[in-house]
Design a protein around this nucleic acid. Structure first.
Length: 838
RNA sequence: GCGAAAGUGGCGGAAUUGGCAGACGCGCUGGUCUUAGGAGCCAGUGGCCCAAAGCCAUGUGGGUUCGAGUCCCACCUUUCGCACCA
């Protein structure tokens, strides 16, 4: 009988759906609680095999845990708001809501074809008012606690998407989504005060034992905690002090000048009487309009203000400069420059001929060996190393009342307003008498109107919607204007994992008791691209929920697993443009643009539509079935690593499943047990032993996410059964059960064909018997002076003396030890004998 | 520049604590079945050598050890993250 996945797969997909096998009663789950989570996907409309890795991996784990009586909850929802749907509306005239809902339907269909089981009774979509209502409610709670504010700040503006972006969404000075160069603009925007939580977010990383070190490190760098001191330098001509931040207050004796950011608030007063004032102001303006990237490319530039400050430790007058390398957003926007011991200050000092003093010994100018360097000729910290000098100098700064020890963070507040339509409306109104007022709770949600025009012209379509904009003030009842900014979609995804537990609750954001029971999420699966965006925001919002008493945990995700991307070659023409695969033909193995002599270059990269290197799952499933894709996707490489898709490689997985399929009638047939010609052992005994060994190995490998080697173990077991199928029914059934997480359809079908009861999915994962794993005979490697010279078979469990005696009697080994003095005999139990001779 | 991870056949990758390097699969070669094969099945497949024996092989060079892909030191390469953060 032929293996026909196209007949088997839809049948079981329907059976699982009809039986609602994935559905979980959150109030009364039964079994051990286990909460699994895939990332909240944006409904882009079409999944490809590159996406498959994330979801197939999650489904395999879900089925494995479930067969072990562990897995319980595996929900899926949609991060449904966002720019792409709105941009499509402008381009194609389809309403974002319509295209989003259609995309969701298609992706659900595709998940189904992969055989992925989600508990759809808990499905959520952020564009649904039943969801975004609570987004708005949460925003108001944050506002009430002083964690949401409207403020003017230099912000990132994407000219292409016509909206502002959070710092986290700017990659190398470009928009994360559309790659346009981001501009700096001073705008009034809504922010969430994530900086209030910087210390807790940093400290909490230590408790995340089961997170990849890489992600923790990225978050640590992004938060950018540094310990140092704020110090005030008096400026007599200004009649006030200027405050600086430094991590090296121990080098303050070497501070020979001061540099302020061009945007520093004291700059105007400092240059008021400067004869070059006009030129300096022009320069400040030009710097102000540059992005950080452009500033860096321009090199170090500065202007002397004409004023001086007093170094409080040397009492020297030091010049105050302005510098393009000093950032207003970090610290106090002013630094003390120590060109003797800071590379950057050194460069600036040399460029402008400023004095350079050396106050620490250790390393070449300007480098300092922080561990071993000692302060010299510095009264308070003379001869001390950095670790001892730092607390001492801070103590002195505090004693003199000119500053204090300070911890500063690189993290800045989270800019969440977007001047776009397709998002959660920020639930605030502007009243001429009462100011900024939140919408009353019983008036939520502030509905996103559907009847707007997508012109693509400047400005948010919501601002043109009079009915939406005109509101009454919740406080005084007078006429007011509604906020037309919508929220960053990362707000939607910062708490969604808790909503699954109360997906249909209209009364509250979620049921605290149930959420405390199920969360934190036991296992989260997603890509590395969320390392400092979603995962940092979610940790922040979780802490605010904790502070509100809504949850009893501060970290939302206990275990995090980052799967690697799947790559494939794409083809570029001479202009560097990607060429569609249908326009590529190979001649003598060289790629050309079809019908032309234009040679193309192949480049391997992440699967994406723009590179034309995606593999659509529908085609693949039609040819080999979803089980083949699932097995291949997990077999290809360790799941955390990047993996290159190979169209030829898929055939291996297909052959394997075909072999498993064709074994079924053979194992069922009753036969006398043949003897294995090699060892004299009975074939069924060998297969049973292999079965127990495989159960042991596969179970362990599943726990460790080593799916590629788990599958190779299953291939070995299948080969062993193929050698001796008679009487191998028990081993075959164990093989099917262990294969089920990877190839759920074919294993359900074979399970049924063998007459086993119920779903294989709900059967119990096999358990290995260690006694039955033991081999009768072990092969021991024999080395002479560490070089392999032979192998001997010894009865299991082997005795040391027997093994060594057998080793010495081996003909080839004898050749190497004959006539030599045996210095040492090393025995590694059941593995190896090493005879050391002279 | 700083930080992290990784370099193993033609390719993807195996190798619990230092103990037979190359499991499993792709590809390739030969065979078999077939009207046919881009299907299936069987065998072989790190290099040198016809083969055995042997020698050489885990980025490079050292070291520790009876024994190193694995540990230590230096270097090279690649990938990723951060990048004037005071």
């Amino acid at each position: 009988m032929q293996y026909r996945p196209e007949e088997i797969e839809p049948k079981w997909q329907k059976a699982w759906a009809d039986a609602e096998v994935a559905r979980v009663d959150v109030a009364n789950p039964g079994g051990e609680k286990f909460y699994m989570l895939n990332m909240f996907p944006y409904p882009s409309g079409d999944l490809h095999v590159g996406h498959g890795r994330n979801y197939i991996l999650g489904d395999a784990l879900y089925r494995f845990f479930r067969m072990q009586g562990r897995a319980a909850l595996n929900p899926m929802g949609w991060d449904a708001f966002g720019l792409p749907a709105e941009n499509a509306a402008i381009k194609k005239g389809i309403h974002p809501r319509e295209s989003t809902l259609r995309n969701i339907e298609n992706m659900k269909r595709q998940f189904g074809r992969w055989g992925i089981l989600y508990d759809w009774s808990k499905e959520i979509a952020s564009c649904h008012e039943g969801y975004y209502k609570w987004n708005q409610w949460l925003f108001i709670k944050l506002w009430e606690r002083g964690l949401a504010y409207r403020g003017k700040a230099p912000v990132n503006w994407c000219p292409n998407d016509q909206t502002v972006l959070a710092n986290e969404q700017v990659i190398d000075g470009r928009c994360e989504r559309c790659n346009a160069l981001v501009e700096q603009r001073d705008l009034e925007q809504w922010f969430l005060k994530i900086t209030d939580y910087a210390d807790r977010l940093d400290a909490g990383l230590d408790s995340l034992e089961h997170w990849p070190e890489k992600v923790k490190l990225m978050q640590r760098n992004w938060i950018g905690r540094s310990l140092g001191a704020d110090v005030e330098f008096q400026c007599p001509t200004l009649g006030k002090a200027i405050r600086i931040f430094t991590t090296r207050p121990d080098t303050i004796y070497g501070a020979t000048f001061m540099v302020l950011a061009p945007e520093h608030p004291d700059v105007a007063a400092l240059i008021a009487d400067n004869p070059q004032r006009a030129e300096i102001e022009t320069w400040i303006d030009s710097v102000r309009n540059q992005t950080n990237l452009e500033r860096q490319e321009a090199g170090k530039e500065g202007r002397f203000t004409g004023r001086t400050a007093i170094n409080p430790f040397t009492n020297q007058e030091i010049p105050i400069w302005l510098g393009n390398f000093v950032l207003m957003q970090y610290g106090t926007g002013a630094i003390m420059a120590v060109p003797g011991h800071d590379e950057r200050d050194h460069e600036f000092a040399k460029q402008y001929g400023l004095p350079i003093e050396r106050v620490v010994d250790g390393g070449d100018l300007p480098y300092v060996d922080k561990e071993n360097g000692v302060a010299v000729n510095s009264p308070i910290i003379d001869g001390l190393k950095f670790a001892d000098a730092l607390p001492k100098i801070i103590e002195e700064i505090e004693r003199r009342g000119i500053g204090k020890g300070m911890v500063r963070y690189r993290l800045r507040d989270w800019l969440i307003s977007r001047q776009r339509y397709w998002g959660t409306p920020i639930p605030m109104v502007y009243c001429d008498t009462c100011g900024i007022v939140p919408v009353a709770e019983d008036q939520l949600p502030v509905r996103l109107p559907l009847d707007v025009k997508f012109t693509g012209k400047r400005g948010n379509p919501l601002a043109q919607h009079e009915e939406f904009v005109n509101a009454t003030c919740p406080k005084c009842g007078g006429a007011a204007r509604r906020e037309t900014d919508t929220m960053d979609t990362f707000v939607d995804s910062s708490w969604y994992f808790a909503r699954y537990i109360s997906a249909r609750d209209d009364e509250k954001i979620f049921d605290t008791e149930l959420v405390n029971k199920w969360l934190p999420v036991d296992q989260y699966i997603g890509g590395i691209e969320h390392a400092i965006l979603h995962l940092l925001y979610a940790r922040f919002i979780c802490r605010t929920l904790f502070d509100m008493g809504l949850v009893n945990f501060e970290e939302p995700f206990t275990r995090l697993f980052n799967q690697g991307v799947i790559t494939k070659e794409g083809y570029k023409n001479a202009d560097g443009a990607w060429v569609a695969l249908t326009d590529v033909e190979h001649r003598d193995g060289v790629p050309y643009e079809k019908g032309t002599s234009n040679q193309l270059t192949a480049e391997v990269g992440k699967m994406s539509k723009s590179r034309f290197n995606v593999v659509p799952p529908d085609e693949l499933i039609a040819r080999y079935g979803a089980d083949t894709e699932r097995v291949y996707t997990l077999f290809i490489a360790p799941p955390e690593k990047e993996a290159a898709w190979s169209d030829e490689g898929v055939i291996g997985a297909y052959r394997f499943l075909g072999r498993v399929w064709h074994l079924a009638p053979a194992v069922s047939a009753p036969h006398p047990q043949p003897l294995s010609p090699q060892s004299g052992a009975r074939g069924d005994v060998i297969v049973t032993r292999k079965m127990h060994q495989t159960i042991h190995a596969v179970t362990q490998r599943m726990e460790r996410f080593e799916f590629n080697t788990a599958i190779s173990s299953l291939m070995e077991l299948s080969n062993a059964i193929g050698e001796s199928p008679a009487g191998a029914r028990e081993a075959y059934i164990a093989l099917l059960q262990m294969l089920h997480p990877f190839a759920p359809h074919i294993t359900e079908e074979l399970w049924q064909m063998l007459g086993e009861p119920g779903f294989i999915l709900t059967s119990k994962w096999p358990v290995a018997d260690p006694a039955l794993m033991q081999e009768d005979v072990v092969t021991i490697a024999v080395q002479v002076n560490g070089k392999l010279r032979g192998q001997v078979d010894v009865a299991n469990p082997p005795q040391k003396d027997d093994a060594i005696a057998a080793a010495k009697s081996n003909e080839n080994v004898r050749k190497w030890i004959e006539g030599k003095e045996i210095v040492k005999e090393i025995y590694v139990p059941s593995k190896l004998v090493n005879i050391v001779v002279k």
